[in-house]
Design a protein around this nucleic acid. Structure first.
Length: 602
RNA sequence: GCGCCCGUAGCUCAGCUGGAUAGAGCACCGGACUUCUAAUCCGACGGUCCCAGGUUCGAGUCCUGGCGGGCGCACCA
């Protein structure tokens, strides 16, 4: 079980504005063992360094496209210049010396490449044993020990239902957090709730005017949404509404704890309660759930601090930081409007200062849509102008928009797909399929929820973050091919194999690793898992993991279709079971990090 | 108008931070369930890697300029 699951507090028990401790890395963090694969690559690199006289860090191994050629390859092109020889000659020349230095690794020069092939049985033994020894922590490490990663994720606006668009920040952010947890970082997941701003003036004013007609306690969010839309519409013909909304926000921001604030507080509480139901289904928890309102008391000091740094100016009545030096057409960052109230940017600056002071983070990742690139660029430029050297640690982890085939989603215009509906439908469809395919399964509803929600989550994490997604029901409800259920199914089959073999009393003897030695592409892929996690975390790119799992499962299913575990010679069954269990561990760990449930049966 | 992001098979996407013959899934076609889950597997089909230059021993990958799509451009969040 990953450290992230050890987080003591779930969002469902969190009150707004409550400060909670960050996650603490597990005491018996993943063993600092060198992964099996690194042992081999290290040996090769050391030998190469010795043979060429070059620094190890300058040498790079790659994987041959064609696995027949070898397990690892070293292209000799870069050496051609310094050695003044043709790459194939160099490869030829190095091969002999390397062969002598490397035991159990075959070296072959193929044209300009040096190809390395690890002795099959030792590869199988080494990788499988190291996976089974690490179990649920295989791929984990403590490389991030002592470093804190702050992740700003999900961040819905209260009084609005979550759309499929909100899923992305939540699911991508949560995966990034789990990846860092697995690598031993201390992580702080912050849900920065949008509960502040002039839009809430409108809502308060709307409730003030028509609140008597509606029942807020029952189905609060759609009710609030309707009020908001109505206010927007009627505002056109009645300018007094606009003034009433502005007045309400001014009162809200003035800090007076009067009726306006009471209404606002009620909206917030009701909305958070609704959101928690979705978070629970997604298996997402936060270390801090904080509204923008939390930073209320930090706004003045923040503005003052920026003013004191001498970079502000008054332009057209507003207090701004000019960013002209970063681009002629770059708009300034506005800290305070003409009427004295603050903006989104002001609150985000207050938040990032607060986070820096609290955590001295290694990175502070904002998992926010790509439509806000300019906003984050501006914030970073402000930090830069203030001369803060930690500015590069603030990163906008942007992602593509979810669009409908007919265009951009708009809650106000009713062109929107609600997350709740997607999860419900996916869960229902999955349950239906289960009852049809696996009638004996005890709790089809529960498993259907795992598979349905898993499909939706996996689908969102499948492609590169920055790519836009055109929402189609057909795609989120796909359960075959490159989908979450495909990976879950692979896991369930492996679990089934283990159950059957154990029930038959087989597979407990000595492993004959030669029996699985030829599955080297699969085994090499299993060995790559730790490196995938490292890269996915560094790039804040969960799709590296989803894509890896899809490829791995293709190999696994192909192998399972070809070889049978049960009923072989004892050493063979044991070895195959060990391989199956290794596969199950990797798939299970991978799914866990993505936040996709890994059912034992489906 | 300016800026940022994206452009790979009919569709949705990979392509390991410049390397060997560009790979999957979906769709379509053909095959495999008396044996550990057929949400699977095996096979066939499918490509001017948007276009034009440039850098390099080598470019889908880097640079420049176009084209197409998306997003954004001071008192919204």
């Amino acid at each position: 079980m990953g450290p992230h699951l050890a987080r003591a507090v779930s969002s469902s028990s969190v009150q707004p504005n409550q400060l909670l401790p960050p996650t603490i890395p597990a005491i018996q963090a993943a063993p600092a063992h060198q992964t099996s694969m690194q042992a081999f690559t290290d040996a090769i690199l050391t030998a190469l360094a010795a043979e060429t006289g070059l620094a190890r860090d300058d040498l790079n191994l790659e994987t041959p496209r064609n696995p027949e050629l070898g397990d690892f390859a070293f292209p000799c092109f870069p050496l051609a210049k310094t050695l003044r020889k043709a790459p194939p000659i160099i490869a030829q020349g190095l091969a002999e010396g390397l062969t002598q230095r490397l035991e159990g690794i075959e070296v072959q020069a193929t044209g300009p490449y040096l190809n390395f092939r690890i002795d099959r049985p030792s590869l199988a033994k080494s990788v499988i044993e190291s996976i089974l020894a690490a179990g649920a922590t295989y791929g984990h490490s403590n490389q991030g020990a002592g470093k804190t990663i702050v992740i700003d994720l999900s961040s819905p606006n209260i009084a609005k239902p979550m759309s499929v668009g909100h899923l992305r920040s939540t699911v991508i952010g949560a995966a990034i957090q789990r990846l860092h947890d697995a690598l031993g970082y201390t992580t702080v997941g912050i849900n920065h709730i949008g509960d502040w701003g002039s839009q809430f003036g409108k809502l308060v004013a709307a409730l003030d005017r028509w609140g008597g007609d509606v029942d807020l306690d029952n189905d609060p969010i759609p009710t609030l949404l309707k009020l908001y839309v109505r206010y927007h519409e009627e505002e056109e013909g009645d300018p007094s509404l606009k003034e009433a909304a502005a007045e309400a926000f001014r009162e809200l921001e003035s800090g007076v704890d009067g009726p306006v604030r009471a209404v606002w507080r009620k909206m917030t509480t009701l909305s958070l309660k609704e959101f928690d139901r979705v978070y629970k289904r997604l298996g997402v928890t936060f270390n801090e759930v904080r509204g923008e309102a939390f930073y209320e008391t930090y706004l003045e000091p923040t503005v003052q601090r920026i003013v004191d740094s001498g970079i502000t100016e008054v332009s057209e009545g507003a207090l701004v930081v000019s960013l002209k030096q970063f681009g002629e057409n770059l708009p300034p960052c506005i800290l305070r409007k003409t009427d004295g109230t603050t903006l989104y940017a002001t609150r985000d600056l207050a938040a990032v200062f607060h986070r820096w002071e609290l955590y001295s983070f290694e990175r502070c990742l904002y998992v926010v849509g790509g439509d806000q690139r300019l906003h984050f660029r501006q914030l970073k430029h402000v930090l830069d102008r203030m001369g803060l050297d930690w500015e590069p640690r603030m990163e906008h982890i942007d992602f593509g928009m979810v669009r409908l085939p007919e265009g951009k989603m708009s809650t106000r215009a009713g062109k929107v797909v609600f997350l709740q509906d997607v999860l419900d439908e996916a869960s229902r469809r999955a349950t239906e399929i289960i009852m049809e395919k696996n009638a004996d399964l005890p709790d089809p509803q529960a498993v259907g929820e795992m598979v349905g929600v898993g499909a939706v989550v996996f689908n969102d994490l499948k492609r590169e973050r920055v790519k836009d997604i055109a929402f189609t029901w057909e795609e989120v409800l796909a359960f075959e091919g490159d989908t979450g259920p495909y990976v879950q199914y692979t896991h369930a089959r492996l679990a089934s194999i283990r159950r059957k073999v154990e029930a038959a009393g087989e597979g407990s003897g000595q492993c004959d690793f030669a029996a699985v030695a030829e599955e080297s592409t699969l085994i090499l892929e299993l060995g790559r898992f730790p490196a995938v996690l490292v890269r996915a975390a560094a790039d804040a790119e969960p799709s590296l993991l989803t894509q890896y799992l899809l490829g791995l499962c293709r190999m696994i299913n192909s192998w399972v279709a070809r070889s049978r575990v049960l009923g072989q010679e004892a050493g063979v069954t044991s070895a195959r079971l060990a391989l199956a269990n290794s596969c199950k561990a990797v798939v299970g760990n991978g799914l866990g990090l993505l936040g996709v449930p890994a059912p034992e049966e489906m």
